[in-house]
Amino acid sequence: MGVNGNGRPATRVVKIRVRRYDPETGRRWWQEYRVEAKKGTTVLDALLRIKAEQDHTLAMRYSCRMGACGSCGMLINKMPRLACETQLLDLGTDTVTIEPLPNFPVLRDLITDFGDFFKKHRDIMPYIVRESKKENEEPYREYYMPPDELNKIIRFSYCIMCGLCYAACPVVAIDKKFLGPQALGQAYRWVTDVRDEGLRLRLEKVDDKHGVWRCHFAGSCSAACPKGVDPAQGIQLLRSKLVALTAGARREKKPTHVATPTTVRYVDVGDAPKPTVEDKSLLVKHLEETAQELEQDLPYVAQALRDYLRTITSS
């Protein structure tokens, strides 16, 4: 058995304790599994292996396996994280505890109900609102947005709605009506967007007893965010916007840089680049080799690669 840079074995058996819940009986319990982990083995890999090889009844939600969809949020070693982005050995503990995300109702095992979370997100109108009814109801062209204006909001646009910030928020834990860091961060993202004209509408939503003012600025939302969105900063900026508007120190920002849809200028970006792998046989060979390498440790990934191979060879 090899060792890694820390002198620890490159492969070791990790005890995984999963908090389980059966909605039919109402039973909650801890269940232990043992999984062999090496560098690169994520918590999601381990859970999928447990599901495939040890316990088919274990329920979890996942999709992309690459930190893009935000489906596999869990409380891993008491910290909200994405299971697909968290490597078992990086956690540095021999026992890894996995629980469903707090502040969400649990449906089964590690699956939580995001209904209320998504409702709060919808409440702040996460889309461009225009004063013209026609533009709102029948949008027909895109709006031009200068790069410097995009820079103001791009950080907040990285939100994948994984709910980790919401799970980490101590205010949501006691005030279930609190809009939460995700919705408030997104409210800031949209009121700052120069293409948007719905500032007043959105501020009415967030200027509420359970809105932006309930935030205690614990900052745990920003610490938990896997995309570096920093919702806590968004909330503070939203507050300063509200205070300035209430005090009359700042006038409502008019979107001066916004072109009307009819005057959008399209830039010719040219043709798409040519494929980097022109010889299909090279790609097939590479995929076959990769599938073989992964056969032992990640059989389901190897199987997925073979399925893909079948698709491209049959087309």
Partner: peptide, 12 residues
């Protein structure tokens, strides 16, 4: 009053 007014008062 509105929450923002109350908070402005709080800060003042």
């Amino acid at each position: 009053p509105r929450e923002s007014t109350l908070h402005l008062l709080l800060y003042a």
